[in-house]
Design a protein around this nucleic acid. Structure first.
Lengths: 340, 340
DNA sequence: CCCTTTGGTGTGACCTGTAACATTCTTTAT
DNA sequence: ATAAAGAATGTTACAGGTCACACCAAAGGG
């Protein structure tokens, strides 16, 4: 017994639609791709046939011929991309899907090989610890457009979107200096992260430049919410136990600040009466903390949106120049800082 | 001038590998698919050729013939899936990619149509507000395996993974009752969410059953972190302003509890001296709050892992019975509750 | 020693769209 | 009227894998 192809669950193809509408499959393809030279009446018939059969274009087949996957890949190198899943929906308006993967710096070339084989159209790179030469990165990229969503200071040939960490740290430290603080401690993120190390270095340099000895510091890790809270707490405990004096603490992120705040409380230190606290990010919880947290606001939403937007730009106009994009943070003064 | 196909950036195909290794393309395919009947020497030659040419199997072509995409789709209906992107990496060990999309209940059938056209192999459904008949859901599913990662009480034909909300609420309210509280307020999530409404209903019933009048309540929305904090705050303010008495508050999630805590503080109400607070989730920040939060722990990580695991199970063994899976929460007593 | 089995390999069709080119039928310019 | 241009549609050849089947040689059974 010979079964016709369209038995059961197999979905209709353009050939089926063509037969239904009494045209050639190519005409159906033209309708699908909104080719101008299709007679309105024909287009109408074909459209009707498509609806009748419940036709949906087979992406795999389209991928195979066009060499375009409509997929962009988010690659987190040496860490996790700490945002919420709905962010991946930003690609939807552009008819792209985003897939996510993590890898080590060593695996990155292989990652690009696989991306190329999957005909991934763009790579959204989150590699906050990766110091890599632009040319090396481009070499392994198989010409897939890349946008780095991090701080890649020296990069001239790769589009990236990042925050000015020096400026951010200036805002935080200046604020404390203006309030009269001279004994300023810091709880940093992992210094392997480029952003975190800039914040740390800038904090140090600003104080040293002014002849002030940098206060005690501890290294944490804000790469996940969990570790941020815990290492914020641990770091603060460590600083307190060091017995070195401090009247203010700079904390690398608002999540860490939650842990820091908790440690201070345990040791009976009041904020801001005994210790002023300034942090970075302006996360949603910052204004609900006790006291509401003074923080250097970074609009990550904007950063992510821009990074995606630039990526789509590079995909559709591969010839335009890469343009690094430095975002400027803002100080939000709340009640965790006070004049000494 | 005739250009050979393999100019520049076009990637090598199995035919290229075959030529390089001096075998047929089918043999290369067999090596790729670990077919047992390939002579070791041949396999070796082919593998070497693949490496030499930097071959990666073209996913689109594979998809087209096998009708398998190696893609699973996470669909959030009427809301956002509030977890972090790295969660999507749980699919990696299984050689799947996860894509994410959101839709309204009305769009869901169309979503499945598109999924079928993309040959999506499984759907991870997060639809905490969706009350839908199993059969209706199955009807629109094009036979794509589905796992619901939410509470779908009546479902017998769909695999789902959820927490026992009744039990969870019992834990919270019993705890307060045991401590002597009789004036118990509640800040709920949006009552359109099935989980939230169960928590609300159970809270009410438990009190009424015992002849206690339910305390004041306010409806919030914990579907995003942002809204959770804000509506937690707003809801608590509303309850306080109602002037109705309460000695304890049940809060729908730990995120909302942050807002609630902040509102209480503003009104000079101490926790737990004036008000006991019990919440749900045991989010990372719960133990760093002031005071550390008593909460009903739900292991979302486990829930997500199980849901993914069940989905892969259903994909590889479509014939096994759907099995609803009810997870049991645990009460974590910290310092936000106290005997009255 | 011949027949059957089976391990190892090759051949050609097929999956479902799209691109390039061919074909038909109008319409316009000369 | 006739060539040329152009609109609408059809034909055929891909894209890069996998599948079904054919084939051959070596091994095992009678």
């Amino acid at each position: 017994m010979t079964l016709s192809r369209n038995t059961k669950d197999s979905r209709p193809t353009i050939r089926d639609v063509a037969r239904e509408a009494g045209v050639s499959h190519q005409t159906v393809s033209r309708v699908l791709n909104e080719h101008p030279k299709v007679a309105p009446a024909t287009r109408e018939r074909v459209t009707r046939a498509m609806h009748k059969l419940g036709f949906e274009r087979n992406l795999a087949a389209q991928m195979l011929t066009t060499q375009r996957s409509q997929i962009i890949q988010v690659i987190a190198v040496d860490g996790k991309f700490p945002f919420e899943i709905p962010l991946l929906n930003s690609t939807q308006g552009e008819d792209y899907f985003a897939v996510y993967s993590e890898c080590t710096p060593k695996m990155l070339p292989r990652m690009f090989d696989m991306a190329a084989a999957r005909m991934v159209e763009g790579v959204f790179l989150y590699a906050p610890k990766l110091q890599i030469d632009d040319d090396d990165l481009l070499k392994m990229s198989h010409n897939i457009p890349i946008v780095r969503r991090d701080f890649a200071f020296a990069s001239k040939k790769i589009t990236w979107v990042g925050f000015d960490q020096v400026r951010a740290t200036h805002l935080a430290v200046h604020h404390l200096l203006d309030l009269g603080h001279r004994e300023i401690a810091m709880v940093t993120g992992t210094l392997k992260a480029i952003n975190a190390s800039w914040r740390y270095a800038t904090w140090r340099e600003m104080l040293i430049e002014r002849g002030i000895e940098p206060g005690p510091s501890a290294e944490g890790d804000y790469s996940t919410r969990q570790s941020a809270l815990q290492t914020g707490y641990d770091g603060m405990c460590q600083i307190i136990q060091s017995r070195r004096r401090f009247s203010a603490v700079v904390v690398a992120t608002d999540n860490m600040a939650l842990g820091v705040r908790s440690a201070l409380r345990e040791y009976g230190l009041r904020v801001p009466e005994d210790v002023s606290l300034v942090s970075f990010d302006d996360a949603p919880h910052a204004r609900f903390m006790d006291p509401p947290l003074t923080t250097v606001a970074m609009d990550f939403d904007l950063q992510n949106r821009l990074a995606f937007q630039f990526l789509f730009e590079r995909i559709s106009h591969p010839d335009i120049e890469p343009h690094p994009h430095m975002l400027l943070p803002d100080l939000v003064v709340r009640q965790s800082t006070r004049e000494i």
